[in-house]
Measured scan of single mutants.
Amino acid sequence: MADQLTEEQIAEFKEAFSLFDKDGDGTITTKELGTVMRSLGQNPTEAELQDMINEVDADGNGTIDFPEFLTMMARKMKDTDSEEEIREAFRVFDKDGNGYISAAELRHVMTNLGEKLTDEEVDEMIREADIDGDGQVNYEEFVQMMTAK
């Protein structure tokens, strides 16, 4: 299944994987998964984290390695993001709930994920998604960005 991913997608997933893999040992533990999910405003229980890991832990060693992570991402993409997942993601970014993602809100979430971005990089990300040019990202623009192939 992971063989249907483009090189660009694999590179993006590698970057995402390293955000989860806090200690850089090449595997994601339940603790690391929990840290990232909490930084995104989720509050999973230990059991939920274990279930999430077990779902993709092909070799049964209790952690997720990069090939397992790729399989999980490929699977998720095949079920292409349901509207509800996209709306949920939008809410994570839209901290003040005004229906727009500002540069400050984007920077806040990315920083929580451990991504240190310059102001230019954040502005560039907003510009790429900002179709109507108002300097922020509304829900429609967010959907376009998330579903762009």
Score class of each variant (00 low, 15 high):
111 T>L: 10
93 F>I: 03
131 I>P: 01
92 V>N: 06
14 K>W: 08
137 V>A: 12
71 T>S: 06
13 F>P: 00
71 T>V: 06
33 L>M: 03
8 E>F: 08
144 Q>C: 05
108 H>W: 09
70 L>M: 12
132 D>A: 10
55 E>P: 15
71 T>Y: 01
107 R>T: 00
43 N>M: 08
45 T>M: 03
51 D>R: 05
30 T>K: 01
84 E>S: 01
79 D>Y: 11
99 G>M: 05
125 M>R: 04
66 F>G: 01
148 A>V: 13
126 I>L: 11
102 S>F: 04
102 S>I: 06
80 T>F: 03
57 D>T: 09
17 F>P: 00
13 F>G: 15
10 I>G: 03
29 T>H: 05
10 I>H: 06
63 T>Q: 04
94 D>Q: 03
24 G>R: 11
92 V>I: 12
52 M>L: 11
107 R>D: 03
66 F>S: 11
141 E>N: 01
75 R>M: 14
27 T>R: 11
45 T>N: 08
122 V>H: 06
129 A>F: 01
105 E>Q: 00
133 G>T: 07
88 E>Y: 14
63 T>V: 09
131 I>R: 13
114 G>Y: 04
53 I>A: 15
136 Q>F: 01
63 T>L: 06
145 M>K: 09
135 G>F: 01
108 H>G: 01
141 E>C: 06
9 Q>C: 12
144 Q>G: 09
55 E>L: 02
39 S>H: 09
144 Q>W: 05
71 T>A: 13
59 D>W: 04
140 E>C: 06
36 V>E: 11
55 E>H: 14
114 G>E: 04
45 T>V: 07
65 D>W: 13
86 I>D: 14
78 K>C: 13
60 G>W: 07
66 F>A: 15
84 E>H: 02
74 A>H: 07
31 K>T: 11
61 N>C: 06
55 E>R: 14
51 D>A: 11
120 E>G: 13
70 L>S: 13
74 A>N: 12
145 M>N: 15
147 T>G: 15
23 D>M: 06
128 E>W: 09
143 V>Q: 06
47 A>I: 09
45 T>Y: 02
82 S>H: 14
90 F>L: 08
119 D>I: 02
28 I>D: 15
7 E>F: 12
9 Q>L: 13
7 E>S: 02
136 Q>I: 07
112 N>W: 05
89 A>V: 10
22 K>G: 02
135 G>M: 03
146 M>G: 14
6 T>Y: 03
26 G>I: 15
74 A>K: 05
93 F>N: 06
73 M>V: 13
11 A>N: 13
124 E>D: 07
111 T>W: 02
122 V>G: 12
93 F>M: 04
81 D>V: 14
17 F>R: 00
50 Q>R: 14
118 T>I: 13
53 I>R: 13
37 M>N: 15
38 R>W: 13
50 Q>N: 08
55 E>K: 11
121 E>Q: 07
48 E>H: 03
109 V>S: 05
85 E>C: 08
143 V>E: 14
94 D>S: 00
62 G>V: 10
56 V>T: 04
4 Q>K: 11
100 Y>L: 07
33 L>I: 10
104 A>P: 13
98 N>P: 03
103 A>P: 08
127 R>Q: 07
89 A>Q: 03
22 K>Y: 05
75 R>K: 12
34 G>N: 04
132 D>L: 00
71 T>C: 05
124 E>M: 03
141 E>P: 05
1 M>G: 08
11 A>P: 02
146 M>S: 04
143 V>P: 14
104 A>V: 11
135 G>H: 05
15 E>M: 02
109 V>P: 05
145 M>H: 08
9 Q>Y: 13
143 V>T: 00
59 D>H: 15
6 T>G: 06
18 S>Q: 10
94 D>N: 11
66 F>D: 01
106 L>W: 12
81 D>Y: 07
106 L>P: 00
132 D>E: 09
79 D>E: 11
22 K>M: 05
31 K>H: 14
71 T>F: 02
89 A>W: 06
49 L>F: 12
89 A>H: 04
105 E>F: 05
57 D>V: 10
124 E>C: 15
127 R>W: 09
87 R>E: 14
46 E>F: 03
132 D>C: 05
105 E>L: 07
37 M>L: 11
96 D>F: 07
87 R>M: 05
25 D>G: 12
129 A>S: 12
98 N>T: 06
138 N>I: 13
91 R>N: 06
80 T>P: 12
49 L>W: 10
100 Y>I: 07
56 V>D: 02
67 P>E: 07
108 H>E: 15
145 M>V: 11
58 A>Y: 08
97 G>K: 15
45 T>A: 14
141 E>W: 04
23 D>A: 12
127 R>V: 05
123 D>G: 13
66 F>E: 00
12 E>W: 07
3 D>Y: 06
114 G>L: 06
138 N>G: 08
86 I>S: 07
86 I>Y: 06
24 G>M: 10
62 G>C: 12
7 E>I: 15
146 M>Y: 08
37 M>R: 08
68 E>R: 00
138 N>D: 12
90 F>C: 05
28 I>Q: 00
25 D>R: 15
80 T>K: 09
26 G>F: 09
57 D>P: 00
114 G>I: 07
41 G>W: 10
106 L>G: 06
60 G>S: 14
87 R>N: 09
86 I>F: 09
39 S>C: 10
37 M>Q: 10
29 T>D: 02
44 P>L: 13
146 M>E: 05
129 A>V: 12
149 K>W: 08
134 D>T: 14
128 E>S: 00
8 E>Y: 08
59 D>G: 12
53 I>L: 15
147 T>E: 08
55 E>C: 03
139 Y>D: 13
89 A>C: 04
149 K>Q: 05
92 V>Y: 14
130 D>N: 11
39 S>F: 00
148 A>M: 07
137 V>W: 13
